[in-house]
Amino acid sequence: MKIFLTGGNGLVGKNILHFSKAKNYTFLHPTSKELDLKDYQAVTKYIKLHQPDFVIHAAGIVGGIHANIANPVKFLTDNIDMGKNIIMASRENNVKRFINLASSCMYPRNAENPLKEELILQGELEPTNEGYAIAKIMATRLCEYIHKEDPSFLYKTIIPCNLYGKFDKFSPEHSHMVPAVIRKVYEAKISNKSEIDIWGDGLSRREFMYAEDLADFVFYAIEHFDTMPQNINAGLGFDYTINEYYQTIASVIGYEGTFVHDLTKPTGMKQKLIDDTKLTAFGWKHSTSLKSGIEKTFDYFKKHVLHD
């Protein structure tokens, strides 16, 4: 099977390409220099030339809260253009199977946890990443509409929870929580800092899955695609407090200092947990524990980030 994967240089894309089952498939994964997904003619020409059996859309402009707040136009328009172009070019070239990777930020900010797939567009979005969320909702709905118009087109969406792992970004300004805390705790240990500050009370709950587990799910989805639901959450189905993430990371790195809560800083949403009912019924479960995932990610950080 020939699979066209967008975003092959990102966290999700790299974990898919390096996963053990990837060798059973032929992957096309052009870089953004080789193929500009914002150019519809270039995208449809590429698909027409290569005739993939399957398309996985994992590309996107991503970033933390600061980047989203500073660049809402880019987060909205670039992600909409990429999503629309890859989905419509795939349909135009009669590609029947398509996986759209979305995000749990599509869910309403005040929705009841755990977050069920049916909650999309049932309430207002989190303002700090609204542009990104709107773009992801657009692509998700477009896949639904295409399947509705012609059921032979299986265009489905996977909605992952937060991710961390190998190939993550560890720079303070671009990284998400887990890699940022790994760097922060490691640097505190190296410089013998006795205290580390945590924003807020540390009691907010977050669900982070090891990215290699998402790659495993993507291959499971490919193998069982006909029975996969139209939209499906992919996550743990349970969560941890911010304090628990800090404590686990500190124990893996061997940091023995204390944590101090800065109650003047914001804590963000109290909880963001996906409902895993459909995931469980589909027959898949993550396999990496938090401690094991942190150990593997810290190992990657030491080998590839500190020495590059």
Rank of each mutant, 00 (worst) to 15 (best):
V62S: 01
L125A: 09
L28I: 03
D308Q: 11
I242D: 02
D226L: 13
A58P: 00
G60M: 00
H176K: 12
G293Q: 01
Y300A: 00
P114M: 11
L290S: 01
D168A: 07
I80C: 06
K166Y: 07
N100K: 02
F98D: 10
G268W: 07
K14H: 02
D299V: 05
E295W: 08
L28E: 01
P229L: 09
P151G: 15
E212W: 00
F167N: 03
F167D: 02
L273D: 05
N94G: 13
G293N: 00
M82V: 03
H18S: 04
M228W: 01
N243Y: 14
P30R: 05
L119Y: 13
I159Y: 00
I253K: 07
Q51Y: 15
I56K: 01
E144A: 12
F282W: 07
V43G: 02
E112H: 13
V305C: 03
A234Y: 12
R183C: 08
D168I: 01
S20H: 06
R97I: 12
A188Y: 04
H29E: 02
G202V: 07
S32T: 15
D213L: 12
P108M: 07
F170S: 02
L306H: 03
N9Q: 05
D39F: 15
K278D: 05
P179T: 03
L279W: 05
F4N: 02
K84P: 14
L214M: 09
D81A: 09
Y132R: 12
G254W: 11
G202L: 07
V305K: 06
N231G: 10
K270N: 10
V95T: 05
H176Q: 14
N110S: 08
G268A: 05
A234Q: 09
I232H: 04
S292I: 04
N71H: 11
E212Q: 04
P52Q: 06
A215P: 03
N15W: 00
K21W: 00
E118R: 13
M138F: 12
I158Y: 00
A59S: 08
V178I: 14
H29Q: 04
Y25A: 04
M82A: 04
G131Q: 07
L115I: 09
I242H: 02
G131R: 11
F301Q: 01
S204C: 12
